[in-house]
């Protein structure tokens, strides 16, 4: 039974993250998940100190506030401080994380919370975190929370599917069509925050990044349709969770880490063998076409800034 709860938690988390992650990957904001999952630490610590309990609701509230604060500060710094998006994000989230670590150390004696647990999470303990409602054993609490977040994400994405789609691909067009872009933007940021927070309580900050970025990126390589991409992203998230759990079981290692590794393996497979434009397909294409470089570049749908080599 404990295995079932652990796998269910991982699957719910990966589904919720994959849904919002798809839009972040499309909007080239993949690192936002990383930023939010680190930056919420002070919010959690403060909520923990104020309520002196591991009560989930205040923690979610504190974390949500800091998640949105991260988004807001990053945007403001970028706009007013003439910094690039990645630099302003890097400043905001590392600073908030550092403050969180300091708060936790400051009250270490009175706080049953450590930053390593937040970084890696401990999904193996999920089955013992039981929610009692009216004296009844309702099953593990994280399952309920993640289930709720998943439902909220689904409602948001299905309800605003068309708007989100236009917003994700062409923000200017969305504005000119009269789509309430601010609502969509902050709605997406809100769902990202809550998915991140709800998941990382059980699976840890780094795995959240893996779940937000890697399955959608894998799906992105395999389709050109948004609806298919969403479904594939969720499927790869769930697949990584299942196989990651067994990898961790066999090697007796961290479940969260193993799930990230499996997600990476699926990504690598898609990168090389994708029938759309996997590395091998591209190699073949280069042989058959006249101007290999240019065509391969065009097929990749790249713009110039993307093709600058990294460091």
């Amino acid at each position: 039974m404990t295995t079932f709860w652990i796998i269910l938690t991982a699957c719910l988390a990966s589904a919720a993250c994959a849904l919002v992650g798809t839009y972040l990957v499309l909007r080239k904001q993949a690192m936002l998940g990383d930023a939010i999952s680190h930056a919420v630490l002070p919010g959690i610590a403060i909520a923990f100190l104020l309520t002196a309990s591991r009560n989930t609701f205040p923690m979610l509230l504190g974390a949500g506030a800091f998640g949105l604060l991260t988004v807001y500060l990053t945007e403001k710094l970028q706009e007013r401080g003439r910094l690039m998006n990645d630099a302003s994000m890097g400043i905001v989230f590392t600073t908030l994380f550092a403050i969180g670590v300091i708060i936790i150390t400051l009250f270490a004696s009175s706080v049953d919370l450590d930053h390593e647990c937040i970084l890696f999470g401990e999904i193996a303990y999920v089955p013992w975190d039981i929610w009692f409602f009216a004296g009844m054993n309702m099953g593990p609490r994280p399952v309920w929370i993640l289930g709720l977040v998943l439902v909220i994400n689904l409602i948001f994405i299905l309800g605003c599917y068309k708007e989100l789609k236009i917003y994700a691909f062409d923000r200017q067009l969305a504005v000119s069509m009269g789509i309430p872009v601010a609502f969509i933007h902050y709605g997406l940021m809100g769902t990202v925050s809550f998915s991140t927070i709800a998941s990382f309580e059980s699976v840890g900050a780094i795995l959240v990044v893996a779940l937000i970025v890697v399955p959608p990126a894998t799906a992105y390589l395999l389709t050109r349709r948004l609806s298919v991409m969403l479904v594939l992203a969720v499927a790869f998230g769930v697949l990584s969770s299942l196989s990651g759990y067994y990898l961790a079981y066999i090697t007796n290692t961290s479940i969260a880490g193993a799930i990230a590794v499996m997600a990476g393996i699926f990504f690598a497979l898609a990168l090389f063998f994708s029938p759309l434009d996997g590395v091998f397909i591209r190699r073949n294409r280069k042989v058959t076409l006249e101007a290999p470089e240019a065509v391969a570049g065009m097929a990749a749908g790249k713009n110039r800034e993307d093709s600058i080599p990294l460091t």
Binding site: V25, K28, Q29, A30, M31, G33, D34, D86, V209, A210, I212, V213, V214, A217, Y220, L221, G264, F267, L271, S274, D277, V279, R282, A300, G301, K302, D306, S307, P309, L310
Partner: peptide, 13 residues
């Protein structure tokens, strides 16, 4: 270089 994955996604991955 070898896919349509953007820089930030590659970094996060």
């Amino acid at each position: 270089r070898n896919s349509k994955i953007s820089t930030d996604t590659s970094i996060g991955m």
